[in-house]
C-alpha cells in the first residue's frame, strides 16, 4: 500500500463524475475562463470539491481542495499571520494553480510554481493521481506538481493541492517614487515585495521588520522623491511576459499605458502581447506530453497550454 494514495471519498466522487469518457472541464471561478483558448461546446462541466482539508500553520503547509475560493483560503491563512503565493484576486485555488500566474508582489511572496508541493488530479482515465508530496523539500521521483501548474487543465483536472505558506511580513509599506530609475529602487532595497513602474512613476513595496523598513525607506528617499501610498496602481488587463531587462524598457515597445514589474519581467498593458513562436522542440515535447496524459483529448478540449 502506498502512503500517498488518496483515500478521500470526496476526491473519489469527483473522479467518478469526471468518468472515463467524453470531453470534460472543471467549472472554476471563471476569472480567466478563456485563457489558452475557448472550451469546445460539447465539454461537460464538472464541479470540483472545495474546502481546506488540513492546515498546519506550524508546518507552513496547507492542503486545500481545488474548488476553494482563493479569497477564503487567504482569509484562513491570514488568521495565522500567513499568506501564500496564490493570487488573492478571486477565482478558485484549482484555477489559480492551473493558470499559474504569479501575484503582483511575487518578489516577496514567491511563485505559484514553487508553492505547489503536492497535487492530486483526475486523469483522462478517471483515476485520482498524486504527484509530489506533503513536505517542504522533496526530490522523490519526477516533478508532477511542476508539470500540472500552469497546464490549464490539459493534462489532468486538478482536485487538491498542498501549498507552501509564508509568514506575512510584520510591516508592509507601499511608496510611490518619482524621478528615479526603477532599477535603482530594486537595487537599493534588499528584498522588496514588489517594484512597479508605469514609464513615469514607480511604486515599491518595502516590507520586513519595522526598523529595517524604516531604514530602507530612508535609503530610498536619498534616491527619489517619495510619498507613501495605499497600494499599487490600477493594472491594465493584458499580461506581457518579458525578461526583467525588457520590462524595464517597456516604454520603448509597448503602446498605450502599462505597469511593469521590475526585476520580474511581467508587464500589464492596455494592448495585448504579440503571439510568440514557441521553441519548436519544446513544442514537440508538449504535444507528446498531451498525447501521453490525455490520449483521447477529453480534458479541457479547445484549450492549449501555450497561451
Amino acid at each position: 500500500m502506498s502512503t500517498l494514495a488518496s483515500t478521500d471519498v470526496a476526491l473519489a466522487g469527483f473522479a467518478a463524475e469526471v468518468g472515463t469518457e467524453g470531453p470534460v472541464a472543471v467549472r472554476g471561478g471563471g476569472t480567466r475562463w478563456n485563457l489558452g483558448g475557448v472550451l469546445t461546446e460539447n465539454a461537460r462541466l464538472v464541479e470540483v470539491p472545495s474546502g481546506i482539508v488540513d492546515y498546519q500553520p506550524a508546518e507552513m503547509i496547507v492542503t486545500v481542495r481545488a474548488g476553494t475560493n482563493t479569497a477564503d483560503l487567504h482569509a484562513s491563512l491570514a488568521e495565522h499571520g500567513q499568506t501564500c503565493a496564490l493570487p488573492e484576486r478571486g477565482g478558485t485555488v484549482g484555477g489559480a494553480v492551473a493558470v499559474g500566474e504569479n501575484r503582483l508582489d511575487r518578489l516577496g511572496r514567491g511563485s505559484v510554481r514553487d508553492a505547489v508541493l503536492q497535487v492530486r488530479y483526475v486523469s483522462s482515465e478517471g483515476d485520482v493521481v498524486t504527484g509530489g508530496g506533503p513536505v517542504v523539500k522533496n526530490v522523490t521521483g519526477f516533478n508532477i506538481p511542476k508539470l500540472l501548474t500552469g497546464s490549464l487543465g490539459t493534462l489532468g483536472l486538478i482536485a487538491e493541492v498542498v501549498l507552501r505558506t509564508n509568514p506575512l511580513p510584520p510591516v508592509q509599506r507601499w511608496l510611490r517614487a518619482e524621478s528615479v530609475d526603477p532599477r535603482d529602487l530594486r537595487d537599493v532595497v534588499l528584498r522588496p515585495g514588489a517594484v512597479l513602474w508605469d514609464g513615469t512613476s514607480s511604486w515599491i513595496l518595502v516590507e520586513g521588520h519595522e526598523a529595517d523598513v524604516d531604514s530602507e525607506i530612508e535609503r530610498v528617499a536619498t534616491r527619489a522623491d517619495i510619498t507613501s501610498t495605499d497600494g499599487p496602481p490600477e493594472l491594465p488587463p493584458h499580461r506581457w511576459r518579458l525578461s526583467p531587462s525588457d520590462a524595464s524598457q517597456a516604454d520603448r515597445f509597448i503602446d498605450g499605458s502599462f505597469v511593469a514589474s521590475i526585476g520580474v519581467g511581467t508587464v500589464w498593458a492596455t494592448t495585448a502581447q504579440p503571439v510568440r513562436e514557441p521553441d519548436p522542440v519544446a513544442a514537440q515535447i508538449v504535444s507528446r506530453m498531451k498525447q501521453l496524459f490525455d490520449p483521447s483529448g477529453r480534458l479541457n478540449p479547445g484549450r492549449s497550454s501555450w497561451t
Binding site: 511575487r106 511563485s111 511542476k146 515535447i285 501555450w306
Partner: peptide
Amino acid sequence: VLPDGQVAMLGGLEDEPDGLDLRGAFVGS
C-alpha cells in the same frame, strides 16, 4: 539536448514562460 539529438530551450528569462513548465519537469530528473 534531447535523446534524439535535438536541442530544446526549456523555460526562459520571463517569470512565467509560455506553455508547460518543462524546465520544472527537467530539474531533478
